[in-house]
Design a protein around this nucleic acid. Structure first.
Lengths: 337, 337
DNA sequence: GAACAGGTCTTAAGCGGTTAAGCAAACCCG
DNA sequence: CGGGTTTGCTTAACCGCTTAAGACCTGTTC
């Protein structure tokens, strides 16, 4: 039989559709024997609930959405995104919730997609990440009433639960680590400052270096790609007062720079120390391996997904604080003797 | 108004639900003026079709499924998968089709998930990749009647359209390239031989090297991870008659090996030439950059997605042949003089 | 023995669309 | 001008499931 329905089960068991529904959903209203009979018939004929019908009658899509606004090529290279997805998956699949995932190139189609997904009842809620400065999404979410959770938020968003991280101490640790190694001219190569977390790190870097070094250290903005990272590195090294240590905003730029520079004869870390914000296996792919901020991306994403499910079910959820990233020291910032 | 329905539109326009449906779907049966009025009202109140209701009444989910059976950590590092997803996305989003994506760890839950997605009418069809030797999926697909397309198939699967690639010539080119450079002791480090394409490459490598070198060259099987690749490399180099050139089955293992070996003083390509099967930005992250087989993964995945949509709409589709991967020569196999 | 309570099942409406069938008015034509 | 066709709409059933309300039976209670 092709795609059996509860109607088929009802007929086979000699009961009504309603009774079948009660039995299959573990609700009271049917006797133990009838329930057992219905369940065994359902299993036998390979019945699977129609998600469309369920969604329609119970107004639950049993799915959540995740949209990435990034260049597909970057998404492919940067391990961060896929690990996040894997973490989300882990939490969702445990409860049989599906994930709608899309990579779009611009924020306009992003919001449009959220609108279609939510309006079309395709999802019960959304996971957001990479919050931007003046992000239009929180306002839309509040207006539409769509449940959403922000992954790794830098600040509170009223009405939108978040998993929150604070980068202040991490940045301070990174700078101190480099100062301890004797570096006095630092620099930072960042992602787009339109991203909230990038903007925050910019501020923290400024504050910490001012406090500890008494002078502003250069920061260069990029689009997070390997090429841009290498270009920015070259520019910094070619300028006056070249830095002896650079903090990169992601693993891709740091690794690419190490690979390029070492092949050109620049000695890392002797001539240039390198530190990356996101840790991943990439960091250990080059020699010397790159010192990086490690955090459990999968675990954090899974937490956010759980928060979202709580929000959807209970109607409310509390912000959850995450451990700040910890510095994993490797060869790229080894002691210079 | 929260999530308006066609009923709201009908009321506002003073017509029946049916008329609204005809108007919104561009079907005949309503006058030009009425249609315009309905459309403008729909736009004004921000109506979005309920995918659940559509799915239920028209038996179309407007979504397709893609399942990866891989260790999440590997999925995160290997660019291949994300590029494939991005390509699929590109084709699907152009037609407003959603993608259900999941990463599972074992083949059993994979098949189970296909069953739930298809039985639950969550998807209109599925995209398969990484076909295994004795894969249970084709049989299930034929039995269930679920439309599916295989991405990058090595052989024909009766009843299941594929995008097909032939690796024979590519393998031959790779080996000839290495022979031209003077190498006489080759080796191959592969992914799991349970994968159909890995098994094929194994055979081709055997055939080609037998023909051109007159002797079997060693092949080591791994799980595709960086660590396993490095381990296999070490084992080969430590053995008797160590190879002077190694063909790796993916970019991750090749890049990791180059990085590790060069940091240990092994000169690439002078002492060991390295060639990777999948090309990606990773290959250019290390020095020397890794020679690799380039193919347009995104484009091919997009083609497969289009094939699937044709299959779903027309009920049939023809296999499509892909360009075989082309060798992009880089530093890791530069001329040894 | 009538009133009541519980347990078990049926009935039927409803979720938001699609679509076949029906129908009234306007149009066409010899 | 009466018949048939076309146009433009309505009606109502249906997709597969959920669920409130009701029906029926058995057993308990006073």
């Amino acid at each position: 039989m092709q795609r059996p329905t509860i109607r088929d089960i009802a007929r086979a068991a000699g009961v009504s559709k309603g009774a079948v529904s009660y039995a299959l959903n573990g609700r009271p209203g049917v006797s133990v024997e009838t329930r057992a009979r219905i369940l065994s018939i359902a299993k036998e004929i390979g019945w699977v609930p129609s998600s469309a019908a369920r969604a329609l009658s119970s107004d639950r899509a049993e799915a959540v959405g995740l949209i990435a606004v990034r260049d597909p090529e970057l998404v492919a290279t940067e391990p961060y995104f896929m690990r996040m997805v894997a973490g989300v998956e882990r939490a969702l699949s445990a409860r049989g919730i599906a994930l709608l995932l899309t990579v779009v190139s611009d924020p306009v189609s992003e919001l449009d997609l959220y609108r279609r997904w939510w309006g079309g009842r395709r999802v019960d809620g959304m996971l957001l990440f990479d919050m931007r400065v003046d992000d239009p999404r929180p306002a839309w979410l509040r207006e539409s009433g769509a449940p959403a959770v922000i992954i790794g938020a830098q600040r509170a968003y009223p009405g939108i639960p978040c998993t929150r991280v604070k980068y202040q101490d991490s940045m301070s640790n990174a700078v101190r680590h480099l100062l301890d190694l004797g570096h006095r001219r630092l620099a930072r190569i960042s992602g787009p400052n339109t991203l909230e977390h990038v903007a925050r790190r910019h501020r923290y870097f400024t504050e910490v270096t001012r406090e500890l070094l008494g002078a502003d250290q250069p920061q260069r903005e990029t689009d997070y790609t390997a090429q841009a990272g290498v270009r920015a590195t070259r520019a910094l090294l070619a300028g006056p007062n070249p830095p002896t240590a650079i903090i990169y905003d992601n693993d891709v730029m740091a690794v690419a720079s190490v690979a390029t520079l070492t092949s050109e004869g620049v000695r890392v870390p002797a001539e240039l120390a390198v530190l990356a914000w996101d840790d991943s296996p990439l960091c250990q792919l080059v020699a010397p391996a790159v010192t990086a901020f490690t955090h459990d991306i999968m675990g954090e994403a899974a937490q956010a997904a759980e928060l979202l499910m709580t929000l959807i079910e209970a109607g409310e959820a509390e912000d959850r604080w995450l451990e700040p990233p910890r510095l994993t020291v490797r060869g790229s910032t080894a002691g210079v003797n």
